[in-house]
């Protein structure tokens, strides 16, 4: 009983993406228009928050990937000792 939802249409997904990118652009523009009262020097860089948010997230994802490469195990890893209990 699959029901059609407006989110199931690829066309609408594309529209959502366009809307999202437009909002991103708007926040960037607003950052130039409004005085952001920078406290630290780095805050004064144009688009600092946007760039910083994007880059640190990339770093966190890559860092997590690297750690996962070391520490990931199949999810039945602890399974055996729990059945024993």
């Amino acid at each position: 009983m699959k029901t059609e939802h407006w989110l199931d249409h690829p066309r609408n997904i594309k529209r959502l993406w366009r809307g999202f990118l437009a909002v991103l652009a708007l926040t960037l523009i607003a950052g130039f228009v409004v005085d952001l009262h920078p406290h630290f020097a780095v805050e004064g860089w144009p688009g600092f928050y946007a760039g910083y948010g994007f880059l640190t997230c990339l770093l966190m994802i890559l860092g997590a990937k690297a750690l996962g490469w070391l520490l990931k195990r199949p999810d039945r890893y602890y399974g055996r000792d729990e059945r024993d209990d």
Binding site: T27, A30, G31, Y49, A50, G53, F54, T56, C57
Partner: peptide, 11 residues
């Protein structure tokens, strides 16, 4: 604005 920039770009 700064919070929205930070969050939306991490999105």
């Amino acid at each position: 604005i700064t919070q929205l920039q930070l969050l939306l770009f991490s999105g």
